[in-house]
């Protein structure tokens, strides 16, 4: 049983590893890999020939103006687009070397590996406790003690434990916007995924709440591969290690964050990050 508690107990080792290998060479550089990837909503092509390798245990930011396809790309990783009518894709999407769209891949197990945090926090109409353990419950975990433990560790990881520990049984709708979003992160962590996708997680939050989430992202990358879509240049610069710039469905430039913001290779990238359009 791959228990979340076990993994969390391993956390110090991972940190150890990180300090040992500051250039992260041990980790896979093409953990999530798009190969000649095209994507269509019905007759409309949204992604054009994307080739993108997202490295393990780093934060990769996807930036670009509205409608550039960055959210679509993100939602392709855990196949959330399956819900949409008339979608079609070409090319390959490999996650840890396996094709995500292989017919033998169970989409449910895929999604268990990949947590997701949405633009607008979406806790269920349940208690805080039940929200956190939802993923575990649907996976069939029943033991009360292990659920309790998962709740505490996940909420601690999401820096929410101290704020809610006394009202775990209350409705999640009683939380503030920032707290709800951190609850959604805790919910995703509780499943002990490998990847966390974040779709503009701070766009509805005030600067204080945003700061907390960003700190959290910084913490979480020690254990998880994080892909974040953001409209906020500063945020991308603050939290990410890699940044991919998309424009009109094409991947324009992908590099180390510092390089993208300081010395972009492409003119379009420079115009965008300098705020000349977008």
């Amino acid at each position: 049983m791959n228990d979340s508690t076990e993994t969390l107990q391993q956390a110090p080792d991972i940190k150890q590893k990180e300090t040992d290998n500051p250039d992260k060479t041990d980790f896979r550089q093409d953990y999530i890999s798009f190969r000649n990837y095209n994507f269509f909503y019905g007759p409309t092509q949204v992604l054009f020939d994307v080739n993108l390798d997202i490295p393990e245990r780093q934060v990769t930011a996807l930036i670009g103006p509205s409608g550039c396809g960055k959210s679509t790309l993100l939602r392709n990783i855990n196949r959330m687009n399956d819900l949409v009518d008339g979608i079609r894709h070409e090319g390959e999407l490999l996650i840890d070397g396996t094709s995500a769209y292989d017919p033998t891949v169970e989409v449910i197990s895929l999604r268990k590996r990949i947590g997701m945090v949405f633009q607008k926090s979406n806790p269920f109409a349940k208690s805080i406790y039940e929200n956190v353990v939802y993923g575990l419950r649907v996976a069939g975990r029943k033991k009360k003690s292990s659920l309790d433990e998962a709740v505490e560790t996940s909420l601690r990881r999401a820096a929410l434990w101290d704020e809610v520990k006394d009202r775990l049984g209350e409705s999640a709708f009683g939380l503030s916007g920032g707290q709800m979003q951190r609850l959604c992160i805790a919910r995703a962590i509780a499943n002990n995924p490998e990847i966390i996708l974040m779709d503009e997680p701070c766009s509805a939050l005030d600067p204080v709440a945003t700061g907390k989430i960003e700190d959290l992202i910084h913490d979480l990358k020690k254990e998880y591969t994080i892909v974040i879509v953001t409209h906020n240049m500063q945020q991308a610069a603050r939290v990410s290690d890699q940044t991919a710039f998309f424009y009109l469905g094409k991947l324009i430039e992908y590099d180390e964050t510092e390089k993208i913001f300081m010395n972009p290779a492409q003119k379009q990238t420079e115009d965008y990050v300098r705020g000349r359009f977008g």
């Binding site: 979406n122 649907v138 995703a188």
Partner: peptide
């Protein structure tokens, strides 16, 4: 968003619908 949230957590369509 309720549906997406549940599905993203690895719930099946049936589990999402019921719970």
């Amino acid at each position: 968003s309720f549906r997406s949230g549940a599905l993203a957590l690895g719930a099946s369509r049936w589990q999402t619908a019921i719970s």
